[in-house]
Structure formats: C-alpha cells, structure tokens
C-alpha cells in the first residue's frame, strides 16, 4: 500500500485516467465525453512521462557545458513517446469535435442515445 504513495505520480496518473474514463462512460453529453477523453489521455501521458524521471538529474538537453555523461540526464525516451501521443490526442479531439458539430446541426441534440433513436425512427418510417 505504501508503494502507492511513494509512486505518487503514477497513482495520480491512474486517478486522472479513472476520472476521464468515468466521464466518458456515464455522461450523456457528447462534448463532455470528449472532455473526458482528453482527461483520460492526459492521465496516460503523465504515467508515461513519470517512467522517465530520475531524482536529482537534469533535463536531457546538452546545454552550456555540452556534457555527454549519461549520469547527468534523465531518460529521454518517454519524453519522445509522449510527444507522439499528444499529437495523436489533438488529432482525435479535432475529428470528434467536427463530428459533434455536424450531428448537432442535423439533429439538434448532443445526446448520442437520442440521436440513434431519431435515426431508427427515420429508418422505420422511410425504408
């Protein structure tokens, strides 16, 4: 149990993931689902970035003294992976928001269940 507190960064990351996941599952409003998705992604990137931190070391930039001693710098690999993840998260948010804009213009509601109900009603009448 104490490990949860000594690994506080990872625990907080999982809690953020949990909050985002909760919003995504239970909230009926589409915009709030997208916000929940973003919070979930932030939690995952915090988890990834915290794998690279080492106490007492500097950021992995060559800097003024341009030293190449590996014991001076933190692990640069998770930082690069998080960069890719952030770009993916931005792209996904943009597409989901544009889908929401189109759906709202057409059905005038932000509730996904209502939208499907309207679609099935139209289908039963039309086809």
């Amino acid at each position: 149990m104490e490990k949860l507190f000594s690994n506080y960064m990872e625990t907080v990351a999982i809690l953020l993931f949990a909050i985002g996941f909760l919003i995504l599952l239970f909230n009926r409003n589409l915009i709030k689902k997208i916000m929940g998705l973003n919070i979930m992604d932030s939690g995952m990137y915090l988890l990834l970035a915290s794998l690279g931190y080492i106490d007492g070391r500097l950021a992995p930039v060559g800097g003024i003294n341009q030293s190449s001693d590996p014991s001076l710098y933190i692990n640069p690999i998770p930082a690069g992976l998080v960069l890719t993840g952030i770009v993916v998260s931005v792209s996904v948010t943009a597409i989901m928001l544009s889908l929401t804009v189109r759906l709202y213009k057409r059905y005038h509601t932000l509730n996904l269940d209502e939208i499907f109900k309207l679609i099935h009603q139209n289908e039963d009448e039309g086809n």
């Binding site: 589409l30 995952m44 759906l103 939208i115 499907f116 139209n122």
Partner: peptide, 24 residues
C-alpha cells in the same frame, strides 16, 4: 449523411477506448 456521421462517432468512441487500453 446524418446516419453515417452518427455511426462514425460511435465507431470512433469504441476505437479510442481500444487504443487507450492498448497504449496502457
């Protein structure tokens, strides 16, 4: 059309959940 866009949104939500678990 509206039907396709709603289907795309639902497909995307499921897919993102899957991607998120994969990345974890």
């Amino acid at each position: 059309h509206g039907r396709q866009i709603a289907a795309a949104l639902r497909y995307m939500l499921f897919n993102l959940l899957g991607s998120g678990l994969f990345l974890l």
